[in-house]
Amino acid sequence: MKRRKLIRFLFHFVFLVLTLAWVYPLIWTVSSSLKTNREMFSGSVKLFPDKFEWSFLLPSNWGQLEEILQFDNYSRAWYIANFSQYFINTLLFTFAVVIIVITLCALTGYVLGRYDFPGKFLIMGAIIATMFIPAGYTIIPLWQLINALGLGKSMAGLVLAEAGGTHVLYILLFTAFFSRIPKELEEASQIDGAGFVRTFFTIMLPLAKPVIATTFILQFINSWNSFFVPLVFTIHRPDLRTLGVGMYSFVEDNSSDLAAMAAGATISFIPIVVIFLIFQKYFVDGIAGSVKG
């Protein structure tokens, strides 16, 4: 019995070390963002700055800690390398995309899940078919289209390009959810005199909160991390770049400033990690739902 306990303890220990190694690149990034460039080039694996001593962690010694930590890296990244601009762009871009996607998919999913009408199968089929049609290089016509709309050099164009596609997974999630709501609810609201639109907004949409939350978090992470569309659409507009693209161009321009790079990466990571930790449940549900459904 005792041996079993020991094995179990050992197993937990090994598993913990393994998982910590798993997230080491993240820890490394944060710790590097507080080091000097010289330290990073010579022995970048160490977690703490060279001059660090454990005693610095005592509250009375925080002054010393402040001295050796290079918060300057953050101000270089934030002000000089334009991460402030990238950060705002990413927030705007992400929220705009998420709102458009949720609205679109909720409307579509509601109608497809609850009503019969001519052409329903055609629409359903067309949506699902997009998953399987081999496309050529669609970014080129998309780029043409956005330019033809006169949005080629604006955040609106960037948002449309990202949000405009067909989001099959979310549509299916909404469709499945709405089709499961009992008919009685709807009839009751009709007896109260609510029309099609009011039923949707006052009865149905509030019920769909879990699906909305799932769509929100999945799309939020997707858009925050989006790289290809922003890369192509901001080739001519550095001031519209999002964090992912901004980081890439920063490294192309300044790759000798590794410490500011790490600070920039940390700035990009923290919000998405926080959002993930908050909404973790919905996220996991959404992903699990996509594989079960």
């Binding site: 669609t138 405009g164 596609g165 067909t166």
Partner: peptide, 24 residues
């Protein structure tokens, strides 16, 4: 309700696919 999705589908999903074949 479907109109926005259909419009975006035609412009942002279908047209890019067709366009990519055309431009090739």
């Amino acid at each position: 309700f479907l109109a926005p999705q259909i419009i975006l589908y035609l412009t942002f999903t279908l047209w890019p696919i067709i366009g990519s074949y055309y431009f090739a």
